[in-house]
Design a protein around this nucleic acid. Structure first.
Lengths: 220, 220
DNA sequence: TTATCACATTAACCAAGGCTTACTAAGCTA
DNA sequence: TAGCTTAGTAAGCCTTGGTTAATGTGATAA
């Protein structure tokens, strides 16, 4: 795995992320430009570069996909990012919504040894503070069978294992409800009109969660 | 404190380091060029930049000195470097000779919160694995009262707190003796002819240490 | 089946950062 | 004060990552 510039790494991340969020696994120039806050022309240039480095499959006017090495690179960055997030959250008592920004910097530190030792130090965690799976060194990604809270039948119990949205506004709203990874919930009622869900927490509190909240909470 | 580029930070570090190694506290362009592995002309350019940012006192053809803010910046970088070294050594089991390179990268991460939390996590250490003082957030630099093992009177007890030499041959020899940071020693006898010192460890072992070893062990 | 339009590419160019060489200026010292 | 060492200036190179404006492509709707 060659050494990439910070920007190159961020493009790889962006492509990976888009690939995994829009079902098809194929990514357009415009989507990348959008994500990277830049112009399509800039993206085309970068795609040529990444293609020369064999990190992406790229043909003019066609959609983009990561190659095997490209995917490996993306997973390696993701691994670093999520391990650092876990470290910040578990050991340095950063809050949920603070970890991302700093991890964004730390993920670009180049040292295989560092990241393996960090993994060991953290006890080989499988999921980061947001419940996202931490890729293994070989690229395996732990698969979660988690479902969306919005899919849970009323009467059923479940446990929050992850969040889909990881932006501060969402995480802060969860904090207001006192909801966090690991919380056990019982779904009391689902309101058909707006998709709201009423749940009971372990502390016997009743909370009404909007549909938008419910589709961003992953539970088991 | 403004945000500096990686290179700017490294120049500041270099100037600080030269300032503190050549008694006078004044630094020449050539010395900086030497340390930074670059040409004097390049240094002149950078000095103009750093001077504009008020980090150094600089007048053409005169020696260079850090200003108060410049010194603060240097200490802040040093603080980060040494805290990361401590983390790598103490928590991730990096060896003495491995910490520097990685800390060199980590020291450029920008997050005041990160470094304060790291400090707290490590228990507010005063010295890094090499026994160098870790500057405080306000810029104070702990003064070590540690003495060389070679200065300890026979009969006195002491504890190893740092090593002066950090090269692997020395460290490997210490490992053979089973000596490490924190070991308590009793100085039994000092041999005047070659300066050797005979010590007793906590495990009641007796070890004879050469003068060269003794002048590279810092004890309290 | 072709006209259209969104999307992608190219070309030319910009700016910052960090560096170089070649030349010139300063200042110390004999 | 000559001569050497040291430092500064000017001009310019290269890389990275960006821009705009113009042009090319190809899916699709009429």
């Amino acid at each position: 795995m060659q050494l990439l510039s910070l920007t190159e790494e961020n493009y790889i991340k962006a492509i990976y992320s888009i690939q995994h969020s829009n079902g098809t696994g194929e990514v357009s120039v415009n989507e990348i430009a959008e994500k990277m806050q830049t112009r399509p022309a800039t993206v085309t240039d970068m795609l040529r570069k990444l293609s020369e480095k064999a990190l992406i499959h790229y043909e003019k006017y066609k959609k983009v996909q990561l190659t095997a090495p490209g995917t490996k690179t993306a997973l390696s960055i993701l691994r670093k990012h999520r391990l650092w997030e876990t470290f910040l959250y578990q050991r340095l008592n950063f809050s949920w919504d603070e970890v991302h920004e700093v991890a964004e910097q730390l993920e670009h530190i180049h040292s295989a040894k560092l990241i393996e030792r960090l993994d060991e130090f953290l006890g080989f965690p499988e999921y980061d503070p947001h419940g996202d799976p931490i890729p293994k060194p070989n690229g395996d990604v732990p698969v979660s069978t988690a479902k969306l809270l919005s899919e849970i039948k009323s009467g059923d119990k479940c446990k929050i294992v992850a969040v889909k949205d990881t932006t501060s506004p969402f995480l802060r709203q969860l904090q207001r409800y006192n909801l966090t990874i690991g919380c056990r919930l019982t779904v009391l009622e689902r309101l058909p009109f707006d998709g709201s869900i009423i749940v009971r927490t372990e502390k016997e509190e009743q909370i009404q969660l909007s549909e938008k909240i419910a589709v961003n909470l992953l539970v088991l």
